[in-house]
Design a protein around this nucleic acid. Structure first.
Length: 538
DNA sequence: CTAGGGTTAG
């Protein structure tokens, strides 16, 4: 048995590993230490728990938990309890983290903050708020850290009332005067709750503004499509001598794209190169490429991409998406080839987009080759949009059984996926199958949308199912509260026309909130024609 | 030696 004085060097070694995120080495070292009979102290356990969190080794973590609790450490050290709670949370065991907190012999504001912030980070806002209540019921006063985490939770669920309440409290307590981070959380909360002008006012009144606060504001304006305002904020922050970082540049590039200001975008581009920010930030390069794409200069986007030679799918995706949306399927597939040559693995977005390019080109053979690659990479079941693109691809090239089987294989389905299949059936005139989709999506609690109804109405009108069509139209408006499009009215007119009910057809044309398109008149005149023919033969 | 703020493509 060693003297406990040797605990310190052992602990330093473990701490070194843990700080470098070499969790396994730290744990191995700890095991060796115990084998040699060196007694761990509080600090040793701090780092051992940290190592468990880094490696996500909750089994080991529980073992340590049991050990320190048996040795009475938890009675003597609030710190260890806090780190223990954090360990469970970082291993993804949030409910356990909470029950551990509840059994700790003593806890403080940091214990609660740890748990609350982890709930917020895991997007479990309600849990975070519940903890907040519990903490106050225990008579523990929240501090700036608590409020920052709670504001994040409010932002997540759009709890503006709660957010305003917190704003009042921190205002009164003067927290905003010396805490930049809390100010940022507040701005973010207002922005995420859609209260852009409040967010802006709060920002303007902060004693000092960091690049993070400005980015939070710019990001929310960009998200609302307010590019011009975001550009003005960018000017302001530069005037305040605040240096933009990669994330701020990403925001402002999106703003340039929104307003279509390629000249401004080019200036930002130069600034980024001067700061050499492109080197470590592939997402910034992606934003640059995307900016040029959205400003309509795909060629330059391609050049920039090749110049900056970023090795990730994220950079190629905006360009591939741009080419596809532009109807330039060949160019999109060419990009894919270049990616492949550079050895960059495509991701779900890449595949979803090249599948669309295949549809544009009517190249279902290539699409199926992509499907094989997608399955090999195990991507199909991880991404609903990619699933939708596959269903769409098969439906568009009339491989409806394959489309259905892809749909069935997805762990969850949204309206886009269901519509892709339904539209496929409807266009082939497979009435029963289309209706089956309509029923099944509703069993899964997926609400049909205008596209769904349009497709079914079209089907009814082609098959001359007047009554079914009318019921459907009414259901769309009355049950689902959907605004009929001009095309939906066209179907209805066509339905009545085909049934020889010209009076009703005319009434709809008169009453619909659109001016009649040539399509409607075409429907009606062909109906008239048929009517006359019918009378002539009668 | 534990806890807090900004981005994410189809």
């Amino acid at each position: 048995m060693y003297d406990s004085s040797i605990t310190v060097p052992w602990t330093s070694l473990i701490a070194g590993y843990a700080r470098r995120k070499q969790g396994q080495d730290a744990l191995d070292c700890f095991e060796l230490m115990q084998k040699k009979g060196v007694p761990p102290n509080e600090v040793t356990y701090v780092y051992v728990l940290k190592a468990c969190a880094v490696t996500g080794d909750i089994t080991k973590g529980k073992q340590i938990h049991e050990e320190i609790s048996r040795k009475g450490f938890l009675e003597r050290s609030v710190l260890l309890g806090n780190i223990l709670v954090d360990m469970y949370a970082k291993c993804g065991a949030l409910p356990q983290a909470k029950s551990v907190l509840e059994t700790l012999p003593s806890r403080d504001v940091v214990t609660w903050n740890t748990l609350i912030s982890r709930f917020s980070q895991a997007q479990e806002a309600h849990q975070a708020l519940e903890c907040f209540e519990q903490m106050r019921n225990e008579g523990i006063s929240p501090d700036a850290v608590t409020y920052a985490s709670i504001l994040k939770a409010c932002a997540l669920i759009g709890a503006i009332d709660k957010g305003v309440e917190i704003h009042d409290v921190i205002q009164k307590q003067g927290f905003l005067d010396h805490d930049v981070v809390l100010g940022g959380a507040l701005v973010h909360m207002y922005a995420k709750c859609g209260k852009l002008s409040q967010a802006r006012t709060v920002l303007q009144h902060l004693p000092s503004r960091s690049i993070v606060v400005w980015s939070a504001l710019m990001a929310s304006y960009v998200q609302k499509g307010l590019g011009q305002e975001a550009l003005e904020f960018f000017e302001q922050l530069q005037q305040e001598n605040i240096r933009p970082d990669a994330l701020a540049y990403t925001c402002v590039l999106k703003a340039c794209a929104l307003v279509g200001d390629k000249g401004k975008g080019k200036k930002i581009h130069d600034e980024i190169l001067r700061e050499r920010l492109q080197e470590q930030n592939p997402e910034l390069v992606a934003a640059l490429v995307e900016m040029y794409v959205l400003c309509g200069d795909l060629l330059h986007a391609h050049t920039v991409l090749l110049e900056l030679s970023s090795h990730s799918a994220a950079t190629w995706n905006p360009l591939i998406v741009g080419y596809t949306q532009n109807g330039q399927g060949h160019e999109a597939l060419e990009c894919y080839k270049q990616m492949e040559q550079q050895g960059i693995p495509p991701d779900s977005i890449t595949y979803a987009s090249v599948l669309k390019a295949c549809n544009v080109l009517g190249a279902s053979d290539i699409g199926q080759k992509f499907h094989v690659k997608i399955l090999k990479q195990g991507l199909q079941e991880h991404d609903i949009v990619l699933g939708g693109a596959l269903v769409d691809m098969y439906a568009k090239c009339d491989f409806l059984p394959q489309a259905r089987s892809v749909l069935n294989s997805l762990p969850s389905r949204d309206i886009v996926v269901w519509n892709a299949l339904l539209v496929g059936y409807a266009q082939k005139g497979q009435c029963d199958q289309a209706w089956d989709c309509f029923e099944k999506m509703q069993i899964e609690d997926i609400l049909p949308n205008t596209v769904t109804f349009l497709s079914l109405l079209n089907l009814c009108s082609h098959l001359g199912l007047l009554e079914k069509g009318q019921v459907l139209f009414n259901r769309m408006v009355l049950v689902y509260g959907l605004e009929p499009r001009l095309e939906s009215y066209n179907c209805l007119v066509d339905l009545f026309g085909r049934a020889g009910n010209l009076a009703n057809a005319l009434r709809i044309i008169e009453e619909m909130p659109f001016s009649a398109s040539s399509v409607v008149w075409l429907c009606l005149s062909s109906a008239c024609q048929k009517c006359r023919d019918g009378k002539a033969t009668a």
